[in-house]
Design a protein around this nucleic acid. Structure first.
Lengths: 135, 135
DNA sequence: CTCATTGCAAATGATTTGCAAGAAA
DNA sequence: TTTCTTGCAAATCATTTGCAATGAG
């Protein structure tokens, strides 16, 4: 979209990407904002949103738009699936699950030019399962 | 959740379900509100939301929580997949696509008790494709 | 009578945007 | 310089909620 525009290397952008890369927790924009704030106390949440959007457009990071939930961000650009815990909301990677059966689908269904799909598993994470057994 | 509570048959609830059932367009709450308002001019958007939620909890209708988009509602309670047009936002049913390959997955992955998944295709609908060719 | 439900308005929560000041290139 | 970016605050958008009044059973 904006391939022709010169993007500048700002301190903010660099640190946002650095901190996101350190995390495997798929933070929300606000969570990442709170982390980045430790290094850049003056940064604003709006800047975090703008940069995450830009990095996503450039394919450097991935935006996980979870059904009915706050978006989360993933520094791993390689496509892979995710599981969301219905209890605590955490999101984990599912590297083992191949997404091939869906990729094989025809590119045109019912007249639609299919561009892709969103697939998201949900369930109870090990931690919350352990807690619920304690009841 | 509320199986023990007595639900009352209100005019509002009846008409909301009636109108939703007439539609195959998977309306948003606001779209349905505007339709229902023709029969019940005093109804409020909040009432529409509350009833759609209740009907969903009771398994009478389906709430489609689309990644990063407004929720839409479907009077067909039988599970089936959907495609969303990235141009105009409309959502259509995909009755032909079986979702079996995913159902066969193990119930526990990486420690997660998998309860289900959200799968949503996206692409360009026939109508928008026709328009874009005209450029 | 009771209490689920409604209409209304205000509140919430996530995300976006307008704008003047600041900083890359 | 030029113009992309930022910080800040206000705006937006979907959805939820508090509350007094209403109505179904």
């Amino acid at each position: 979209m904006k391939d022709h525009v010169a993007h500048r290397n700002t301190k903010q952008r660099t640190i946002i990407l650095e901190e996101l890369t350190k995390l495997t927790s798929h933070p929300t924009a606000t969570e990442l904002y709170n982390i980045v704030r430790k290094r850049l106390p003056k940064i604003s949440l709006g800047t975090v949103y703008r940069n995450l959007e830009l990095l996503t457009e450039n394919g450097i990071i991935q935006k996980l738009e979870l059904a009915g939930n706050e978006s989360r961000f993933d520094a791993m650009a390689v496509r892979h699936n995710h599981v969301r815990c219905v209890e605590c909301g955490r999101v984990d990677d599912l590297m083992d699950i191949p997404d091939d059966p869906l990729i094989e689908r025809p590119a045109i269904i019912d007249g639609y030019r299919i561009e892709g799909y969103n697939l998201e598993f949900y369930g109870v994470c090990p931690h919350c399962y352990k807690k619920s057994k304690g009841k």
